[in-house]
Design a protein around this nucleic acid. Structure first.
Lengths: 204, 204
DNA sequence: CTTCTTAGATACGGAAGCGTTGCTTATATC
DNA sequence: GATATAAGCAACGCTTCCGTATCTAAGAAG
């Protein structure tokens, strides 16, 4: 994910332009994941990228500025929802996609910014303005809306709260245990929490 | 919350023993909330507490050590569950208590440690071992178990996933918006997500 | 091959935190 | 009031990062 860098590069070759920028972007994301938002440093990013500090200061003014740039380049991550006529299966698949997305370095960098938003308010704002729009049940909500439009479930039940149930439980599982939920857990979340809220029969 | 410190203390008075320790504990918690886990420093805590750096090093070996000590002193926060025969009301009350608890400096310090657990694994472990046991639906779970025991709801439906629904949605609301959910939102969470999962009638 | 652009290497003075030391002085105890 | 305990204070050499400046050398363009 990083390491097209320092040691690997045969001393006599120099990256320029886009290739160099990409390497620095990767280094910035790797850096925030390893040392955290509060300990990001131009020197650290340069070291990790195998680039000269000078090359960073030529383009960016601060680690945060650089990080935002890196994230904007890495997004958007659009999540298409394949809609068959299997509500339960589509919900499970949506949460599976979410879990996969959460594992990406970009997503974890965003999470790091979100959790420290009160310490760096400007950064969180800029993330929203410049990178992507927040506040989403972007995964299950898409699915639920589709089936509500079909008439398969009652559209009045697809409230903001209900559209967040699946995502909320995935996130809580992740922060509680430190690992993403496996398929069995995802299935349990859909069967025991999401489906009941949209009026599907209980008990599975 | 902090500031029994520096400027306020009339130059000729010295705190000792427990009073000093308490002031330093407060300063440590305030410090982690302001600068974050990664930027906590012995000098910073000492400055905030209006104490000498020496006095910290006499008792603790690192900012993390000190922080853990401060948290252990501030806990436990037991949450009793007043059980009448109003499931819905008790669920709402439980989540209200949770929101209140989340606002405390101690809880936010714990949250800071949890969100950076991969950066400081030892700290998160020590928090569990030395301070309190994790992994809870400690709020709504207590309520749901009570009513399951009474036979008011089906005990088989009170799974780990279901016991986490309320807390998960409160947490997600908080991290998404940056502010705790108000009473209307809490009510919506209970009505639209928790109650359906335990077989209560929909729609409300 | 020549030239222009741009990355790399190195050094800088300054700031801040580190963990420790030696010493002074306030507070508690007898 | 004398004495033991414990806190404050100031300075130490060391490290890391800051932002900048200077100089060399690799890559691209003509």
């Amino acid at each position: 994910m990083d390491d097209e860098a320092a040691e690997t590069r045969p001393a006599g070759r120099r990256r320029r332009g886009a290739a160099l920028v990409a390497a620095i972007h990767d280094a910035a994301i790797a850096e925030v994941l390893e040392v955290g938002l509060g300990r990001m440093t131009m020197e650290g990013i340069a070291r990790r990228a195998g680039a000269a500090k000078t090359s960073l200061y030529r383009r960016w003014t601060s680690p945060h500025d650089l990080l935002l740039d890196a994230l904007r380049d890495a997004f958007p991550q659009e999540v298409p929802s394949p809609a068959s006529d299997d509500l339960r299966g589509d919900l499970i698949e949506a949460l599976r996609q979410m879990v996969g997305w959460m594992g990406s370095p970009q997503a974890r960098a965003v999470a790091a910014i979100m959790t420290e938003r009160d310490r760096h308010p400007g950064l969180a704002e800029a993330l929203f303005e410049r990178v992507f729009e927040p506040r989403g049940g972007r995964f299950t909500r898409t699915v639920l809306r589709h089936y509500a439009a079909c008439g398969a479930i009652d559209g009045a039940l697809v409230t903001p709260v209900v559209a967040d149930i699946g995502e909320a439980l995935v996130i809580k599982y992740f922060t509680d245990t430190g690992v993403p939920p496996d398929d069995d857990t995802i299935t349990a979340i859909v069967d025991q929490a999401v489906l009941p809220a949209v009026g599907a029969p209980l008990g599975r």
